[in-house]
Structure formats: C-alpha cells, structure tokens
Amino acid sequence: MGTVAVLGGTVAGVAAAARLAHVGHDVTLVEPDPGWPDALAAQLGATAGSVVVDFPAPWRDLFTKSGRPAKGALGLHGLELVPHPDSPGDRGEQWYRDVDALGEDAAAAWRDLVDAADRTWQALRPLGLEAELTDAAVARAGLDPRRSLAHVARDLRHPVLADRVRAVATDRGLDPADAPAWLTSRLSIDRTFGRWQLVDAAGAPAPASALVDVLRGRIAARGVPTTATTPAAAVTIDTRDPGLTWHRPRRWRPRDTFVDQLLARPRLADPSAPGRFVAHASSPGGAEPWAQVLSGALASYAAHAHLTGEDIRPTNTHQGHGRAR
C-alpha cells in the first residue's frame, strides 16, 4: 500500500481518510486548526438543533466502507438515524398533501416539476458524484447554460411552489438568480430518499457535534493520526475548500454560463501533478455534506488506483432508485 496525506479536516477529508485507511494505506489527516471539529460541525449543519440528512445512502456506504455499518457506528455513540418529521414523503404523499393544501392544478404542477427533476438528477450523477467530471459528460447531460432557479420559480406562477424552488437556493446560502436551474435535482433527492435526522437514545434530536464525534471515531478506529504539518506522502488529497460559489451568467460575457462555471471547478485529478487529488465543497459534485462524502469517495478510489493500480469503485452505485431505509 502507500502513504497518503489528506489536507483538511472536512467532510470530504474525513470520508477519504477513513476509506483509504480501511483498505490498508498509511493515512494522515493534516489540519493545523485545533478547532477543526467545530468547523466540521458547521459544515454538517443543523436545523432546530438536529442534523438533517437528506441523502443517507452515501453516509451508510461511508461507514460500511470504513469498517462498520452505519447502525453499529452510530450505535456506539448512542445515536440512530430516523425519518425526519418534516420529510416531504414519497410521490403519493406529496400529491395528496398538495391537493389538500393548494388544489389539484398546483399539485400537478409540482408533481411535473419534480418528475423533471428526477431526469435532471440522473443527468447529474456522472458529473462529479459517481464519476470524475469530464467535458464530454457535461455535454451529454444537456444542462441549461443560463437558466436559474429564479427562472424556474417565476415560471411556476404559484407563490407557494415558487417559494419551494427559491428555498432550494436560499437554504444553501444562494440567491435564486445565482443558482443554476439544475439544482432542482435536490427536489428529486428529497422525494426519492426523504429527509432523515440523527437522534440520541432518548429519541431527542442530536446536534451536529454528535456526528462529528462519530466521524472522528471512525478515523481513530482506522489509525489515522491528525497533525498540523504535512508529512511526505506518495499521494495528497486536498479537501480544503476554496469557497467557489455560483453567480448569475453575465450577458456580455458569452463564456460565463453556469456550464462554464461547472467546468471551471477544480477537477478530481490534475494530469500535471500526478498523485495529487482534490475533493471539497467546491468540487463539481456539490457542497452538501452528502455530496462531499461522495467527492471524498471518488478521491479515495483515484488515490488507491494511483498507488496500487487496483480499481475499488463499487460496481453497483448507491445513488439508485427508491427510498432509503
């Protein structure tokens, strides 16, 4: 096996470190800030004091691939992942709820929008989530280069539905006019997988710090030390976020579309720097914690292949259909 330095105590960093250590590499997590666990908790986010998990499959896969299934890893800390009371529900639940609250026309408009978002989600999966982003994959995805979430909200012509679309942006700290329309894919994720939350043994919502403790426990169990200085290593994975954000395309700059911005994001590997890989909140996969877990997984697969020539990517991806249980 080989030596790996993971730069940054981030969601992507911990995910990559745990996976690589589990398959036998000598991994060091490099984080000079002693307050990094608090920063990690902030990345995980919290709503009403609890961690909301809107796509649990990548987390479950991370725990399994680092040596202990999620139920056991969480159970060691007296925690459990359960459905969130505000989960949007499956297709049928959402339909009847919307019919009762908004009327059949609005319910149909929302159903059609989320059905379209399902197709968008399928197009996005190869773009930095299940595989390294490439120009060819982006071209095949057919992403609208200039349409924003603000455009989607405006076209719905219903204030409640428009607010739901705008919330996809605002919940992520974005202006809807600055967010690409393909982020409607997150509506598909919500409907397909539901929302989940972390609770303690008494069933009370658990804070983000509790999940940080679980993640730190995983890398500790795998023998990953944390240091403030970067050691010599055969492979480096940089998970420190440069803080890239989306911005609305400028009309007078034809090469400033949302697609251009996506293609300009840091790629997983740099051919000019063999053995150096990138995975962070500004990676093409996205900034959500689950997306960072997937970016970290891609970096771990690439690092392992670089060191050993072996492909350990799963043959059956975990971004499949159906609600996670």
Rank of each mutant, 00 (worst) to 15 (best):
D190N: 12
A208P: 05
R186P: 06
R267G: 13
A153V: 06
K71W: 13
P180E: 10
L244Q: 14
H321G: 13
R111E: 13
E132H: 06
A221E: 14
A279H: 04
G45T: 02
A232L: 05
V6T: 05
A279P: 00
E31D: 12
P271H: 02
D241S: 02
G2N: 01
G309E: 14
V82S: 10
A232Q: 13
I189Y: 07
N316A: 15
G2W: 09
G322A: 12
S188I: 06
E80F: 06
L74G: 07
T184M: 08
A206N: 02
A206P: 01
E130A: 14
A208Y: 08
A273C: 04
I189A: 07
A116N: 12
H77K: 10
D61W: 05
D238R: 03
K71T: 15
D105S: 09
R265A: 07
V278E: 05
P145Y: 14
G35R: 07
D260E: 05
D178T: 12
L127D: 12
A15W: 00
P145I: 13
A169N: 04
G92T: 15
A299Q: 01
L263I: 07
V138Q: 07
D144M: 06
P242E: 14
F258T: 00
A41Y: 07
L174D: 14
E93C: 10
T47K: 00
G322K: 04
D54Q: 10
R125L: 14
R19F: 01
G275Q: 01
A21K: 00
T226F: 10
S87I: 08
D213G: 11
A123N: 09
P242M: 05
G45Y: 06
T28K: 00
A206L: 02
T3H: 10
A228Q: 02
K65V: 09
Q122D: 15
G8E: 01
Y96Q: 12
T28G: 00
L307P: 13
V168E: 14
L74N: 08
H84A: 11
G286V: 00
P242W: 13
G309T: 08
D118K: 05
A299H: 10
G275N: 02
D118I: 03
L298V: 09
V278L: 00
A201R: 15
L113W: 04
W110S: 01
A41Q: 02
R147W: 03
V23F: 03
M1Y: 12
Y301E: 12
A42F: 06
R313W: 09
L161F: 12
V14K: 00
W110Q: 03
L79A: 12
A12F: 12
H22V: 03
T230L: 08
A281T: 03
D241Q: 01
L263R: 07
T10C: 00
D311C: 04
T229F: 05
L307W: 10
G142E: 04
V224N: 02
R240Y: 07
W95S: 11
I189K: 05
